[in-house]
C-alpha cells in the first residue's frame, strides 16, 4: 500500500512539474495587449457586441487544463496559452479592457452553453465540422492544427497513420484525435484518458502502442521527455473556430473582421510565438484564411 501511494504521489508531482515548464509566464499578455486593437465602429443596439460592452466582460467557454492553449497557471492565477490570449485580446477589442470570465466547457456542454446564451463565445480547440456548423456558428478558422503520432522510443512498425490498424491507440478523451484515429485506421482500438499527463503515463506503462494528440502538445511533451518519440508529420487538418450562437451572423462577421485585423497586423503571430512557438521551432505560420 505504501509503495502504491508513493507511486501515485510521484505520478502527480511529475504531472504538475511537466505542466509548469510548458507554460509561459502570465506577464506576456501585457506586451500583447499593448499592441491590441480596440473596436471603434458603430454598435447595433441589442446586438451581441452591445450586450458584451454593457456587461463590461466577455464570457468565454474554454479549458483550464490544455497546455500551450488554455491552462491556468497555479502560481499567478493567470490563464495562459494561445486560446486564452486570443480570448483576452477579443475582450480588449470589444470592451476596451481584457476582462474575461472563463466558464469551463466540455464537449458535452459547448453547444448548449452557446444556444442558451450562457457564454458569448467558445474558444477551446473547437474543430469546425459540418455537423457542428448546423448547431453553432463558427468564426475563423483562427488556427490550423493537426494530429500527430507519438510512440515510446524504440517502437518499430509504426511509421504512418495506417500502421495504427489493429493496434491499441491512446487518445485524449473528447479530442479531435478520436475521430482522426477512427478515420485513419478503423480497426485500431481507441483508449481514452482525460488529460495529457494521464495519456503519457498510460503510453509509458504499455497500455497502448501509440498516442495520437495535437502536434503542438506532443512537441511540448517530447521536449521534456526523452522516452517519447514523434512519428512523421501531422496527418490531419483540424481548423479551430470560435464558436458563436447559431444564426448570429452579425457577431460572426464582427469576430471574423477582428481575426483578419490581428492576422494582418502581426499580432496573431506574436500570440503564436509567446505560446505554441515556445515549443515548436521555426517562424510563426501564416494565420489560416478566414472562411467568409
Amino acid at each position: 500500500m505504501g509503495r502504491l501511494f508513493v507511486a501515485a504521489v510521484l505520478l502527480f508531482v511529475a504531472g504538475c512539474a511537466g505542466g509548469e515548464g510548458a507554460v509561459p509566464g502570465g506577464s506576456k499578455i501585457d506586451a500583447l495587449l499593448a499592441k491590441a486593437p480596440v473596436y471603434a465602429g458603430q454598435v447595433t443596439p441589442g446586438s451581441a457586441v452591445d450586450r458584451i460592452k454593457k456587461r463590461g466582460e466577455l464570457i468565454i467557454g474554454g479549458s483550464q487544463d490544455a497546455p500551450l492553449l488554455s491552462q491556468l497557471d497555479p502560481i499567478s492565477g493567470e490563464l495562459t496559452g494561445f486560446d486564452a490570449y486570443l480570448g483576452k485580446l477579443l475582450a480588449q477589442y470589444i470592451v476596451g479592457k481584457p476582462s474575461t470570465e472563463l466558464l469551463s466547457a466540455t464537449s458535452e456542454t459547448r453547444e448548449p452553453l452557446l444556444a442558451n446564451g450562457t457564454v458569448d463565445v467558445i474558444i477551446q480547440t473547437y474543430t469546425i465540422t459540418p455537423q457542428r456548423a448546423e448547431r453553432v456558428a463558427f468564426a475563423g478558422p483562427y488556427y490550423q492544427s493537426g494530429q500527430s503520432i507519438a510512440v515510446r522510443k524504440g517502437t518499430s512498425g509504426i511509421g504512418k497513420p495506417a500502421d495504427l490498424a489493429g493496434r491499441t491507440v491512446i487518445v485524449g478523451a473528447n479530442t479531435p484525435g478520436v475521430k482522426a484515429v477512427q478515420d485513419a485506421a478503423p480497426t485500431a482500438k481507441i483508449l481514452e484518458f482525460g488529460s495529457d499527463p494521464e495519456c503519457l503515463t498510460a503510453l509509458k506503462q504499455g497500455r497502448g502502442e501509440a498516442y495520437v494528440q495535437d502536434q503542438a502538445i506532443l512537441v511540448a511533451d517530447a521536449s521534456k521527455d526523452s522516452e517519447l518519440q514523434l512519428v512523421g508529420e501531422p496527418f490531419t487538418e483540424d481548423p479551430y473556430g470560435i464558436g458563436i450562437k447559431h444564426g448570429d451572423a452579425e457577431f460572426t462577421k464582427f469576430v471574423n473582421d477582428w481575426l483578419r485585423e490581428i492576422g494582418k497586423s502581426g499580432l496573431w503571430q506574436e500570440v503564436w510565438k509567446q505560446t505554441i512557438g515556445t515549443v515548436v521551432t521555426g517562424d510563426a505560420p501564416a494565420p489560416p484564411a478566414i472562411a467568409s
Partner: peptide, 10 residues
C-alpha cells in the same frame, strides 16, 4: 461522449 463528439447533440 464519443458519439456526441461527432453529432454535437448533447
Amino acid at each position: 461522449q464519443r458519439i456526441n463528439l461527432e453529432l454535437a447533440q448533447p
